[in-house]
């Protein structure tokens, strides 16, 4: 019995996503513009990093070639999470308009409904920029142990995406209190993605603890890069910590779950 409902759910999800994919691809010009824009956004972000390196050769112990790895890993993970759950940032609109009530009435968890309601295909090109940076970084850097590097990159791509997806859920959960905080959802998630693409060694103690442990952004790009290059890492953020990424992902999910549940219960309806 349980298996059949599970399978029915999957079929339904596939049907919804299939229709969303067809819907997005059917407006060809708009879709092409979206794809091109997402690509350019990624390129401009890479340019921001490059501009800093036009002034210096080494930042926080990493060269531009090394930072390409940090950028690539964190961008692939962030863009993939954005593709799957990024549309949660529409929640404030539903809350402000009161249309969120409809979701509460349906016999499915609210989060599952919202996540499965859309897939943002335009993020695909953004992932592409990350892949280019990662491959570029892997080819220009000296990688002492390729097998270990492959393992840590795979670990980062899977659990790093989980870390960012959990942050999207956390930010969306906060919207039940903030209401008009769409900008905040963006800055929180983009802020942690920004932090994730920097060499964490430039941070002071408080920031290291914040983005190393509280919001584990450094786990996604910086720590795996240290392992790939065989570097020891700064105080508070030793390289071996990269292997604990699954724990960091678990911690992020725990926080996201708590905030989301509290948010859903906090909502009192718009009347009507």
């Amino acid at each position: 019995m349980a298996e059949t409902t599970w399978r029915a759910d999957l079929t339904a999800y596939r049907a919804v996503l299939g229709s969303r994919v067809r819907a997005q691809a059917s407006y060809r010009t708009s879709f092409a513009t979206d794809l091109a824009t997402a690509f350019l956004v990624g390129v401009v972000e890479l340019a921001e990093t490059w501009v800093v390196f036009s002034q210096v050769d080494v930042l926080g112990g990493l060269s531009f070639a090394a930072v390409l790895l940090v950028f690539g890993l964190s961008n692939i993970c962030f863009a993939t999470a954005d593709l799957v759950v990024g549309h949660l940032d529409r929640l404030p609109r539903y809350i402000q308009a009161g249309t969120i009530d409809v979701f509460y009435l349906r016999p499915q968890p609210l989060l599952a409904q919202l996540v499965t309601s859309e897939i943002s295909l335009r993020r695909l090109t953004r992932i592409g920029v990350g892949v280019i940076a990662l491959v570029w970084g892997l080819s220009v850097n000296d990688v002492p142990d390729p097998a270990r590097a492959a393992a840590v990159v795979a670990l980062s791509l899977v659990f790093g995406t989980v870390v960012f997806a959990a942050q999207f859920v956390t930010a969306a959960g906060c919207q039940f209190w903030l209401v008009n905080g769409a900008e905040l959802t963006n800055s929180f998630t983009y802020g942690s993605s920004y932090a994730a693409s920097q060499p964490a060694s430039v941070f002071g103690t408080v920031l290291k603890l914040t983005f190393g442990y509280l919001v584990p952004a450094a786990f996604v790009g910086y720590l795996p890069t240290l392992v790939v290059l065989g570097l020891p890492g700064p105080s508070l953020l030793p390289a071996w910590l990269a292997w604990c990424l699954p724990l960091a992902a678990l911690w992020s999910c725990l926080v996201a779950g708590l905030v989301w549940r509290a948010g859903v219960r906090h909502y009192q309806g718009a009347g009507g």
Binding site: C174, W177, L178, V179, N180, G181, E183, L184, S187, F188, G191, Y194, A195, Q198, F203, V206, L207, T210, F211
Partner: peptide
């Protein structure tokens, strides 16, 4: 609340 939250993110970005 949105203002307070906005201020907090501004500061975090500032630190980074």
């Amino acid at each position: 609340l949105a203002m307070v939250a906005g201020l907090a993110t501004n500061c975090v970005f500032g630190f980074i």
